[in-house]
Design a protein around this nucleic acid. Structure first.
Lengths: 326, 326
DNA sequence: GTGAAAGCGCTAACAC
DNA sequence: GTGTTAGCGCTTTCAC
């Protein structure tokens, strides 16, 4: 039973264990030497006192920081209102917890990447997870954070990345459409500035090129609203389109909504595919490709925290999920 | 242009501004006196040096902590795999960011609430947001965190709460069912241990009691899987049931799935309502009630960080959203 | 109004 | 193996 309710400090532990503070520190931190007896006594003292190391003090002496920053690039702050990001943040937070680190989310304006520097100059930032980033942004990651920054999306020479293999996922989906006899396949892409959203586009082009089919691309932004508009544009420009590949499930759902509103049968007249396999996808019978967001985020956080590449975690596989829409 | 890439410290700022460190500190922290000139010079020096206060050092001297803890009660660690929680964590994180705080998520086992004490004895914890908590847990919040703890769900004498007015939401839904002519209305409840899930049950009982209708309750747990089982049980025990009120959208969706699998028409034979208005609800034409999770979480975090009750934020209104399922 | 000095809790040389 | 010592960067009495 503790007398004072003031939380125990390392000094208290050392005193109770009858050793010096340094010895206590070595034992607790698990660094340096200590005799078995000392070790034993320190540990007993520690947990009988309910000792919990003070993270701030540790961070101060190590200069190491107390939180992970999740930096999200986007055109506006609404980039943060996104269930994909929710999953990332939440997953990262869970990995951080046992390390005594917190997580923060910040929006980095696409057109003012310099703001990243200000965020990252904060010594409290122990590590960095970049989401939806660009090459320019990647180059802004300071040396201090080398090895402590990971990008979910594209990487660079200095910043490793983890991501979904959306090229392979898209490839599988387009092949499926082709196998089903679709020959006039359009794609609603992601935003132009987002490099990792370009891989599916490349996959789509390659496949159609190989098959001698025409490329039909409309720019979207992952949202359902843009999906609706994109569907209209596709139909206007290429009325004979018989399949539409959406960059995301939300996009695809928007596309389908618009198509049906226009009296177009899905998949009868036009087949539609998405990407991500969100819960809504199964309810709406959307054909899509899997995207293990939590596992990817966990891998990213782990790489940052444990300073090592997590084997086989650079590209997570994406498997097609065939349902009624295509 | 900074010469050394070592981040500027308060000493650097003071030196550059030609004042003492104390003065610089007062100016930066906005506390204590300083002449306009001093103020001016310190600020210039600060942002020309790109000075960012070291959160760890501050926390150390203040003994104030560097992160908010989101403590989630549940029977197992899978309580953390939940999109509702994702939204809470992400929203809390956004409120924390400008304050230089991070967020951590931890699971508190329902049957070992003492673990909360260990989590909360960590001085690095600056504040506490409890999710799905119980009265027993609330009493474990230490004095140190008084005024720095908020519960999303039930509150207590020492811990204020913010929550959705699920009693009113449920009330509106049941009234709607009644108005539609339903008279044999069953309910799939939340887990027994969760006090805030009891309010809708009370609302349901009161309404049915007033109308002289029989109460038909089956215990669920918010999940779709339990919703399916619950639907079976309802049909077995009370085959003439003509409406089922689900404690959540997931529950209701499970109920509907099972009902349809059993050849029961929804809403023809049995009307079904949910709660939360998740995106899936609109896609599946589920009648439900709104639940502004992000706003609630934001209010909770704000109360903790700014140490004041956010006016009118104790009970957030829930509005019925009428669709095809009821 | 401003500076000097002490100390928050911890770790890491460096001597013993 | 263990203790002594010197800070990490900041805030805050307390003299001036």
């Amino acid at each position: 039973m503790t007398t004072a309710r003031r939380p125990a400090t390392l000094d208290d532990v050392a005193r109770a264990a009858g050793v010096s503070r340094s010895t206590a520190s070595r034992v607790i931190a698990g660094t340096g030497f200590a005799s078995p007896i000392a070790r034993e006594r320190v540990h007993t003292a520690a947990d009988q006192l309910g000792y919990v190391p003070n993270a701030a003090a540790r961070a101060l002496v190590h200069g190491s920081g107390v939180r992970l920053l999740v930096a999200v690039t986007g055109t506006g702050p609404e980039a943060l209102d996104d269930s994909y990001l929710d999953q990332v943040v939440s997953s990262v937070a869970r990995v951080c917890a046992p390390h005594g680190l917190g997580v923060t989310v910040e929006w980095v304006p696409l057109h003012a990447p310099g703001l990243l520097t200000r965020l990252v100059d904060d010594r409290a930032v122990a590590g960095l997870v970049l989401v939806n980033t660009t090459g320019a942004l990647l180059d802004l990651v300071p040396r201090r954070l080398r090895g402590r920054a990971v990008s979910i999306g594209i990487g660079s020479a200095t910043v490793p990345s983890v991501d979904i293999d959306n090229a392979a996922g898209t490839d599988a989906l387009v092949r499926h459409l082709y196998a089903e006899g679709r020959r006039r396949i359009a794609m609603v892409t992601g935003p132009r500035w987002l490099a990792c959203a370009d891989r599916p586009v490349q996959a789509y082009r390659r496949l159609l090129g190989d098959a001698g089919l025409p490329v039909r691309e409309v720019v979207g932004d992952f949202s359902a609203a843009r999906g609706r508009l994109a569907a209209q544009e596709v139909l206007r420009r290429w009325p004979d389109t018989d399949a539409i590949v959406g960059i995301s499930d939300a996009t695809a759902l928007g596309v389908i909504g618009q198509l049906r509103a226009d009296g177009v049968q899905v998949p009868g007249d036009v087949a539609v595919t998405g990407f991500d396999d969100i819960p809504l996808a199964s309810a709406t019978e959307l054909t899509t490709a899997s995207h293990p967001v939590r596992r990817i985020a966990r891998a990213a956080a782990t790489m940052v925290l444990e300073q090592r590449p997590v084997p086989g975690s650079t590209m997570f596989p994406s498997a097609p999920v065939l349902r009624a829409s295509a």
